[in-house]
């Protein structure tokens, strides 16, 4: 198929940036979206132009690196997939596709489609861990029984890949789904209980400090999340946060 691409180009954080049109031809429906971008970039390089910068690494939907806002949706029109798992069979010949970076105040643009998501790292550093030494002097792994249900639910929350699609999809650029998933993983496991109060307070405080917006329950994040992280995690975090403040 032949396509028109409207792509956000911005040379660095200080540049104003603009949309630029490109044409690509003979795109196979079996290609992934990023392979289509590779075709475009190879074309640009051979013409002596600068290729479009975009983040990607694993190309199998797990590292959370890829991050394109395609036709107004984080990770594009398909559901339950990251940009790298999106396939061209979702588009048709003659389509015009707009491609922008994940936008949020807390995600400044580095170049073109590449954004800085280190705010997510700092939220994790504020409390997204269990304070256990890594010396191996821990009790036997089977010493504490954990119900299959709790383990599975914790796992569901833990599958968040930290991509930031939830933030990009939210009109307030809120990071509640991401933070909620992390808080939930620990809240659902006995190992996480001891530091529960400080964890939720510190992570929420850091989230606010980074300039993420408030949650107004529009639910757009859940729809665009490639890993199906559910809004329940936000509710659970709110409960944890509330009870942490009561305990204070």
């Amino acid at each position: 198929m032949n396509l028109t691409l409207k792509i956000w180009r911005q040379s660095d954080a200080n540049d104003k940036g603009k949309m630029v049109d490109y044409k690509v031809t003979e795109i196979s429906e079996h290609m992934s979206f990023l392979e289509m971008m590779d075709v475009l970039n190879e074309q640009l390089i051979n013409k002596g132009e600068e290729p479009v910068a975009f983040d990607h690494d694993c190309r199998e939907g797990i590292c959370g690196m890829c991050s394109m806002f395609i036709n107004g949706e984080a990770h594009g029109p398909d559901r339950g997939v990251t940009t790298c798992q999106l396939h061209m069979r979702m588009f048709k010949d003659g389509d015009t596709i707009t491609i922008e970076p994940f936008r949020a105040k807390a995600f400044p643009v580095i170049k073109d489609l590449v954004v800085d998501r280190s705010s997510f790292d700092r939220i994790q550093q504020a409390g997204g861990y269990i304070s256990v030494n890594t010396s191996g002097n821990t009790q036997d792994a089977n010493a504490t029984l954990i119900s299959k249900h709790a383990a599975d639910e914790a796992m569901d929350a833990a599958t968040c890949i930290g991509c930031g699609a939830c933030v990009a999809s939210c009109k307030n650029a809120s990071a509640m789904l991401f933070v909620g998933a992390k808080v939930s993983q620990y809240a659902l496991l006995p190992q996480g209980q001891i530091e529960a109060v400080d964890r939720v307070k510190n992570m929420v405080a850091q989230m606010d400090l980074e300039g993420f917006g408030n949650c107004t329950n529009t639910g757009a994040c859940e729809v665009e999340c490639p890993k199906g992280i559910s809004l329940e995690n936000i509710a659970r975090m709110n409960r944890e946060y509330f009870s942490a403040n009561v305990k204070e």
Binding site: T134, G136, Q139, D140, T144, Y186
Partner: peptide, 8 residues
């Protein structure tokens, strides 16, 4: 395995 379980 012990270590990882302790980490959550």
């Amino acid at each position: 395995i012990d270590q990882c379980v302790a980490q959550g």
